[in-house]
């Protein structure tokens, strides 16, 4: 077996996997807060990346400043969305909520198409170019290294935020038991709103990092596939586990790059299908994922 090739595939998987993990993280945050899967998550993140691009290209803000601005703006937008579109509905009734997020999906996707047109844009590089490891075909680019660093930093930041701050405590209380937290005086609405804002911020950061990938271009449809990979990642890690999102994201990334390479009868175009099958298998045999908590329903 060619070690260089294997390493190259693993590095590839690492880069893709971290992006999936970022979006999966956003899905997990919203799921933890509201037991809702936000189908518009990928599109919200895409919108954030476009905002960052505009801030950089049209207003001349330095790139990292633009990204931070986009993260803040998309957090505010998501908080508004939660207040106006999500909160009026009964959280236990899934269909209207799914429909609302699907409506958001269509709305944001076409709005971005209207504002920024459908031509692909060149997103500026956020990280130094070149390779950290250069060993024959096995190249680990600085992009990959910094992407992994970004997700690790976000995860540590989120863990600290949720475990060490008061608003994090409220968030965990609401996600573990909504009624009891209401009884002890936690304001549930604003806490969930905080969850949405947090998720949108993380998603936008992930989308910006993803768009900065030298081989990718920014266009309104570039997150469509990512949502499927990310939800497979989130389900694999357990929909309510933050670190599970990282594990799930990396696992899906490896499946995509390593398995598709080494199993001859799996054709190249099938990486998305592989993700779908992983998703299906996990939900069938271990619905709680590998790091999530199992749900028990009582009658």
């Amino acid at each position: 077996m060619d070690v260089q090739l294997l390493l190259a595939r693993i590095f590839d998987g690492l880069a893709n996997g971290s992006t999936y993990a970022m979006v999966a993280l956003a899905l997990v945050i919203i799921y933890k807060a509201t037991t809702l899967i936000n189908f518009a998550q990928g599109e919200m993140a895409m919108l954030g990346a476009f905002i960052a691009y505009t801030a950089w290209f049209n207003f001349g803000i330095p790139m990292w400043g633009a990204v931070i601005l986009a993260v803040i703006l998309s957090a505010i937008l998501a908080a508004l969305v939660e207040r106006v579109l999500i909160r009026p509905f009964d959280p236990a009734d899934h269909l209207p909520l799914v429909i609302i997020t699907l409506g958001l999906f269509l709305g944001i996707n076409s709005l971005a198409g209207l504002i920024w047109r459908l031509d692909p844009l060149r997103f500026p590089e956020l990280f130094p170019s070149g390779n950290a490891i250069d060993w024959g075909t096995a190249r680990l680019s600085w992009y990959t290294v910094f992407t992994v660093a970004t997700i690790l930093l976000s995860l540590v930041g989120l863990t600290l935020l949720l475990n060490k701050t008061k608003v994090g405590l409220a968030f965990r209380a609401v996600s573990s038991n909504l009624e009891s937290s209401q009884l002890v005086g936690i304001k549930v609405g604003p806490t969930l709103q905080f969850g949405w804002a947090l998720a949108a911020g993380v998603g936008t950061l992930g989308a910006c990092v993803f768009a900065a990938n030298p081989v990718l271009q920014l266009e309104p449809s570039y997150m469509l596939r990512v949502l499927i990979f990310a939800s497979a990642a989130a389900a694999l890690g357990g929909l309510d586990s933050l670190w599970g999102a990282l594990a799930g994201g990396l696992a899906v990334g490896f499946v995509q790059s390593v398995v598709v390479q080494y199993i001859p009868w799996v054709p190249n175009q099938m990486s998305l299908a592989a993700a779908a099958v992983v998703l299906l298998a996990v939900l069938l045999f271990r619905p709680a994922g590998f790091f999530g908590t199992a749900q028990v329903s009582r009658v």
Binding site: M270, L272, A273, L280, L284, P287
Partner: peptide, 28 residues
Amino acid sequence: LPALRIHGLYLALVTLAFAAIFPSLVRL
């Protein structure tokens, strides 16, 4: 079949994933 074990949103997720892979499936 997943609907026999999984509910609501999970099912929505799986079925949306299958909708997403159809175009790449016929391009095989």
